[in-house]
Write a protein that binds this DNA or RNA. Structure first.
Lengths: 156, 156
DNA sequence: CTCTTGATTTGACTGAATCAAGAAAGCGAG
DNA sequence: CTCGCTTTCTTGATTCAGTCAAATCAAGAG
């Protein structure tokens, strides 16, 4: 697995560098992370890595299709290594937890708009909003505000 | 129509103020606008309105259900008056143009994830990415880069 | 008309991300 | 193995969207 990243980088026409391997390592362990968390985690392996290097690496990875960038409303961009399978995401309104959902249909775009209004659609992005199991419990226990942040448009 | 806003504000328990009426006026004319554009446009009617007032008004409108906030990846948040019908959006990768798409199914969430992973889902947000009619032409005419900005992950 | 409460202004501030210039490292050719 | 070109990383400044807080101002109930 370790060497695979090296190969993948080369295949993508990218040089194999320490910052890139560190970032890939972090992404492999954490399915959905923001740039800042990646920088912090990567520093345990490569202490001198700069935040901007992380942005640069991520841009290169996304640009070459090795990683995917998702931008849930109300938070920083997140990155994941799972690419090419056009899956979707569940986002928790309470704690920001993200889970993957397999796409029912196979290829992108998995959905077609009822009226495309002249658009050539190449991707249908689906985000399911709700409460994760833990936050549902926390809500019911009525300790309103236990789980920090993200409090806002909860519909129920 | 003019007076309806006043009524709607009152019904929502909000005071009727000049900044709020100005912002509502702008939103009624432009279906999908960002806060900055709203501020600029509102100033033609109410010159002294401050940018922060616009943020305040928008937060109040969204909070009371009179407006909806959407946040397409890679751009500032946009606001629209069309609420309560759970419709979706088409976004142009070329120029950022946004079009509404009626939801095929009626109520939210219109879609259910195949495996909710314990989440209580209350909304399915769908964004269709592609090229609008104009940008398709511009692309074909090969004047690459005519339509500013937004250039990046075009799949085709 | 007056008073209370809610809204707006003003101005400072945060967080995420980009840009630019110089230094450093990858890696192919010799 | 070494050279040297090119890509990538570092450092530091800068933008952009949006928030926060204190003070002023106005809506509208009484």
């Amino acid at each position: 697995m370790e060497t695979t990243w090296e190969q993948q980088l080369r295949t993508a026409g990218l040089r194999v560098t320490r910052p890139r391997l560190s970032v890939l390592g972090v992404l492999a362990e954490h399915p959905h992370v923001d740039a800042d968390t990646i920088a912090t985690a990567a520093r345990t392996v490569h202490p001198s890595i700069s935040p901007q290097a992380v942005y640069g690496v991520l841009k290169a990875l996304v640009g070459s299709g090795l990683a995917r960038r998702i931008e849930p409303a109300g938070g920083p961009a997140l990155y994941e290594l799972r690419v090419g399978d056009n899956h979707h995401h569940l986002v928790c309104r309470g704690c920001g937890l993200i889970a993957d959902v397999d796409c029912v249909v196979g290829q992108a775009p998995c959905l077609q708009p009822s009226d495309a209004a002249g658009f050539a659609v190449d991707e249908a992005e689906v985000v399911f909003w709700g409460l994760c199991a833990d936050c549902q419990v926390a809500r019911r226990t009525h300790v309103h505000g236990t789980n920090s942040a993200f409090e806002e448009g909860v519909i129920a």
